[in-house]
Design a protein around this nucleic acid. Structure first.
Lengths: 350, 350
DNA sequence: CTGAAAGCGCTTACAG
DNA sequence: CTGAAAGCGCTTACAG
């Protein structure tokens, strides 16, 4: 094969080449490619023919540099430092798919990066102008990164966060209606005749999502004249190991319980293992429910009752929300509905 | 808060601002930032002080434009069109984490995109010069995309693929030693006294990874004077549903089997469900093994014996390999070792 | 309707 | 050791 169309040099065809071939100025090439209306049809045709012939496509870096924007969004996935490097919460990974697709639809590139809670997010992305806006994803100690959010706001960074929608938070959030989700679980357990519901997860303000799920569940119990026994609550963060440890601690306390609501599926899956090890049958002895509907929830034994968040719309909403901010349009926080998915860990007839 | 340091405008501080503040030319600012040796220490200090004060960071788009490169790598995740939109193979997601980290270490940005097998990968990324190199990730019909790989090679695109390392393939691959992995499983099953091993997965040349795993398992059996019964092989692609259907088909055939090797964990998890539905006990009646060691493998019932691929080094190798190509350095395909992880689906004492 | 020219923020020969 | 200048590939007032 001889030099051929590529001439040995990489990515070489520019708007100037097109201009030469079409016999117009480079400016005109740019105009037809951008779709400016006041270009004659004849010129337009000539240019497009040349574009086809040379398989030209505009260099988005140059275009963006000129336009003073980046044309890309950055997704910062941050995690608890306690988590193992290789074990990203599967829920976030499914969000990633949805966000990627939404970006493609919006004509934005997506830069993905895994952050430590300790990093300086703004410096990394906005300052070096690699992205017009940030999408923040991850559970973590809210108190610890709230100040980061405030800093981002103060710096004028455009961003949106996936997580609990709180009244006084800095910046915008898209999140699942965790309270409603918790309430669905609570109502479900009550309807099954369960009376003593344990809760696994840090229900403090530091984890607003868990906090809301806990509150929702408590509300459902209260409506039924019951209540969540604080003795049946054990802290856990979102991992299988932590869930296992929490369930072991719960059993150790020796207080009776006939249902267990785990703040996340990962916690639930760990709890399931602990219950089995202690000879407790699910759902006969203990009905179990989680939250997130990760893929593994369908494969656990027994399949896990859980609350599904609408990840498909979540991705689209996140991208829309940052883009609105980037374009200076008004935007607000949004709460997405949660859906109960009943499986055999709570209801044998499911 | 008044205009303060940001002046209301976004990302405004440039090397010119630094030059003014430091009392040098803009060229000099660039020099110290790039670490050119022949700049006096005094100048260097002045510039760095200004950089600190204005919290300046170089605009990588402009830098890259000037340097005729992009400073970013693109990860193309492609999937079987048959797969549901939202269910990305968890194995690839764990690779994503590893690749992201490797990119960060290499100072490269990572553009992530989910592709259909039908898209024109080169046009999307290399032509529009959004990336210096491509990382291809995904199982799919090898025959269907082999021609795409050839096209990429012909176009001079730098890329590396995760997958089977084949002798005559276009371009470079990093992959797990699937043959060895299959052999480890085969040897393990033989040692457990299993004689009639079923295989779930498309073992044709169209899926080289599965093909090699199948061959490896067959080799181990042959060494023990046994063989893989073709009647006990059922096609399946990598999903829980497909694995379930394949196992049902296997059982329907009515041919005895005491072990089952699934070409991937997703298939294995589906098979586990089918076996349970048909009253077959694991591992007593059937020992089961998968491949990939996805997170769900630890949570399945019983926990799944499987083959772990070294995803951590895989990410680094993939990034290193494209970067070598980008810099015009020699690079080759690499096969990574596979590790057997014995769990209770094959060995109750595990 | 179209061209010549300036400029987005950098890097690097070319002089000195 | 450092500055003035050209240029990476675009977009868009400004003229005509």
């Amino acid at each position: 094969m001889d030099r051929g169309s590529d001439g040995g040099k990489r990515g070489r065809v520019t708007s100037i080449d097109i201009a030469h071939l079409a016999g117009v100025s480079q400016a005109t090439v740019s105009r037809v490619l951008r779709g400016e209306p006041r270009v004659s049809q004849a010129t337009r045709d000539k240019v497009m023919a040349a574009v086809q012939e040379l398989r030209y496509t505009v260099d988005s870096r140059a275009s963006n540099l000129r336009l003073q924007r980046t044309g890309t969004l950055a997704l910062l996935l941050f995690e608890d430092p306690t988590d193992d490097d290789s074990h990203i919460n599967p829920f976030f990974l499914s969000m990633l798919g949805s966000i990627t697709r939404a970006c493609a639809r919006a004509g934005q590139d997506l830069l993905v990066s895994f952050q430590q809670l300790s990093d300086d997010w703004h410096a990394d992305y906005a300052d070096s102008r690699k992205a017009d806006g940030l999408i923040l994803l991850g559970y973590g100690d809210y108190l610890a990164y709230r100040c980061k959010l405030e800093k981002l706001v103060a710096q004028g960074t455009r961003f949106v966060r996936w997580g609990a929608v709180l009244p006084d938070q800095p910046g915008l959030s898209i999140g699942c209606d965790n309270f409603q989700g918790g309430r669905l679980v609570g109502g479900h357990l009550v309807r099954l005749g369960r009376r003593r519901v344990a809760f696994l997860g840090d229900a403090s303000q530091r984890f607003p999502e868990f906090h809301d799920r806990h509150r929702g569940c408590a509300a459902a119990l209260t409506e039924a004249g019951l209540s969540l026994d604080p003795q049946l609550q054990v802290d856990a963060h979102s991992s299988e190991e932590s869930g296992h440890a929490a369930a072991v601690e719960l059993i150790r306390r020796g207080r009776r319980f006939d249902a267990l609501f785990a703040a996340s599926d990962l916690i639930a899956v760990g709890a399931l293992r602990a219950l089995a090890e202690h000879g407790l049958r699910v759902p006969q002895d203990v009905a179990v429910a989680g939250f997130d509907d990760i893929p593994a929830a369908r494969f656990s034994h027994p399949p896990l009752t859980t609350v599904a968040q609408d990840t498909a719309s979540a991705g689209a909403m996140l991208v829309d929300t940052v883009m609105h901010q980037v374009r200076g349009e008004p935007a607000g926080s949004v709460m997405l509905p949660a859906t109960l998915r009943v499986r055999q860990s709570s209801d044998p007839s499911a």
